[in-house]
Amino acid sequence: MKGELKILNLAHGLLLGLVLAAPLIAPSLLPWGAEALFIIAAFQLRLADRRWETRAGLRGWISHIRMAPLRLLPWTGTAIVALIAGPEQARLATAILIAIAMGELLIYPVIAHLLGRLPRLGLAGAILLLLIGCGLAEPGQAARYAMAFALGMGGCVFWLRGPDGEAGATLAASAGAVGALTVALVWPAVQGVAIPAAILCLTLTFAHLSVMRRHPLHWRLPSVANN
């Protein structure tokens, strides 16, 4: 759904540009910028494919893979930028390529429909577990980026449940982002959890701001909607 969430798309494009320019601006921030890209890109990917059920057999997987090459181009550029940043970032480039391959070929096809079946509380629990998993991995590792990818997917499903565009939900997401950033600055020891939480909350905030409406639409099960 290209262009649907204009503010989120703008933030995504700006972040990609900053990551590509990171070797000249702040090479030390490149791992965190790449992590933010994983979260936002996975959010956008899940948003573009709203099917709660995948097609039977291998058809759903094949359909997803056929579109993968175009999505992989920005990641290839990001990996090249990591190599340009210096020999010490060569491991980062490898981690990015491994993580995006895992995300596109394994994580998304396997858990996309599973996340859609979870109740809201279960989905929140899954997001919390992914945040804890991110905290247990070192920044710049492939495993951490893969979990960030899954985190972005979970955040999108959470947002799709609605109510999207509601002022209260927007303020809650904004407050979560500010709170997580504050925690990351005050307690550096918990940055591994706080920073991805802040990125996810910012992504939710941008998504909400992109669809602000006077009468928010609440998510309902198809069976409820037909009654």
Results as ranks from 00 to 15, higher is better:
5 L>H: 03
8 L>T: 03
16 L>T: 15
19 V>D: 06
20 L>E: 10
22 A>E: 01
23 P>I: 06
31 P>M: 00
33 G>L: 07
34 A>I: 12
35 E>Q: 15
37 L>H: 07
42 A>Y: 00
50 R>G: 14
51 R>C: 04
51 R>F: 03
53 E>A: 14
53 E>T: 12
54 T>P: 02
56 A>F: 10
57 G>I: 08
59 R>F: 09
62 I>D: 04
63 S>F: 05
63 S>W: 08
63 S>A: 11
65 I>K: 10
69 P>A: 12
70 L>R: 14
72 L>E: 08
78 T>K: 03
79 A>N: 01
81 V>Q: 08
81 V>D: 04
83 L>I: 15
84 I>T: 12
85 A>K: 02
86 G>C: 04
86 G>Q: 03
89 Q>N: 09
90 A>H: 13
91 R>C: 10
92 L>T: 12
93 A>L: 06
94 T>P: 03
97 L>T: 15
99 A>K: 01
103 G>A: 03
103 G>L: 01
104 E>S: 04
104 E>K: 05
107 I>S: 00
108 Y>N: 08
108 Y>G: 08
109 P>C: 07
112 A>V: 03
113 H>Q: 15
114 L>T: 14
126 A>C: 09
128 L>Y: 11
132 I>F: 07
142 A>C: 07
143 A>K: 04
145 Y>F: 15
149 F>P: 10
151 L>E: 00
153 M>W: 03
158 F>K: 09
158 F>C: 05
158 F>I: 02
161 R>S: 11
162 G>L: 01
162 G>W: 01
168 G>L: 06
168 G>D: 03
169 A>N: 10
177 A>H: 05
178 V>H: 09
181 L>F: 14
187 W>Q: 13
187 W>C: 12
187 W>R: 11
188 P>I: 10
191 Q>Y: 04
193 V>W: 02
195 I>Y: 07
196 P>H: 09
198 A>Y: 01
203 T>Y: 10
208 H>E: 14
213 R>Q: 15
215 H>V: 15
216 P>S: 00
221 L>G: 06
223 S>G: 11
